[in-house]
């Protein structure tokens, strides 16, 4: 975890949780072949919540959030995103995917398109936004992540931190209601982690519903309203950050925290 990330104080005043349900997962199970990766997951996320999912590698945290936009298929149980149930119906999947933004560990920008084109692609082809308008939206979000001057460059010419911020802007251009972050800072140098986390904090301050898989415990303390600890495909513990870090209940959580905070 990075100390730099803690320097900027998050403003929690606008981070309010509404009682409207954004994501509801009930009794969800998932297998990879015979391997039971997610076991009886029950999770309700209200609009405006900032949830950090932590846990050792292989605990199923990435798989869990990838189920929410159907990058992974679940075999049992229900997932309801913004009132739409995830089934194999392609129309529902497309609808949910255009409402749910996602950032990946390795950014996954499109290397053959310029930064601006990366950002305008989905609005133009999925939302049918006119090109000019899409470009205005893209520039707005690029300014927000503080790299409007890179708009005409290609992803390969940017640093990792800049690429991840572009990836965030690219998702935001679709005006998503929920953002999923899959270890957004794990592939970055410490200096670049800060700039990405700052962007994420800003997003949280604006009331975005966020589910973040991350090892940045500083970010979790500052921004999250709930921390979920997973191990062996199960939710082991969830609590408010203060309580979670200062007073963990399960032994598995204590061990994990002692290892991740110990250095």
């Amino acid at each position: 975890m990075s100390e730099l990330a803690q320097k900027r104080e998050a403003d929690r005043s606008k981070m309010s949780v509404s009682d409207h349900i954004a994501v509801q997962i009930t009794n969800m199970n998932k297998w990879y072949g015979a391997f039971h990766v997610l076991r009886d997951i029950n999770l309700t996320v209200n609009e405006g919540e900032r949830i950090v999912i932590a846990g050792p590698s292989g605990s199923g945290k990435s798989t869990l959030i990838r189920c929410i936009n159907r990058l992974e298929e679940h075999q049992q149980g229900d997932i309801i995103v913004d009132g739409t149930e995830l089934t194999s119906d392609l129309k529902n999947i497309d609808k949910i995917r255009s409402e749910v933004g996602m950032c990946f560990q390795h950014f996954n920008l499109f290397p053959h398109l310029s930064i601006l084109e990366n950002c305008t692609l989905a609005p133009i082809w999925v939302r049918k936004t006119p090109k000019k308008e899409a470009e205005e939206i893209a520039m707005h979000f690029l300014e927000k992540v503080k790299i409007p001057e890179q708009a005409d460059k290609f992803p390969g010419q940017l640093s990792g931190g800049q690429q991840q911020r572009v990836a965030i802007a690219r998702s935001l251009c679709m005006k998503p209601r929920i953002m999923l972050f899959d270890e957004p800072t794990s592939a970055l140098d410490p200096e670049m982690i800060k700039e990405v986390l700052d962007t994420m904090i800003e997003l949280a301050e604006e009331g975005m519903t966020m589910l973040c898989v991350t090892h940045e415990m500083g970010f979790a303390r500052q921004v999250a309203n709930r921390v979920i600890f997973m191990d062996q495909g199960q939710i082991v513990e969830q609590n408010e950050p203060e309580e979670f870090f200062n007073n963990p209940k399960s032994d598995r959580t204590k061990l994990f925290l002692s290892q991740i905070l110990g250095h």
Binding site: N69, S98, M102, F104, N108, F110, V126, M174
Partner: peptide, 17 residues
């Protein structure tokens, strides 16, 4: 890399697009 497929999917692009 599979990430390219995933990013396209996550943005809501259908198969042909």
């Amino acid at each position: 890399p599979t990430g390219q497929y995933e990013a396209a999917d996550a943005l809501g692009l259908d198969y042909w697009k």
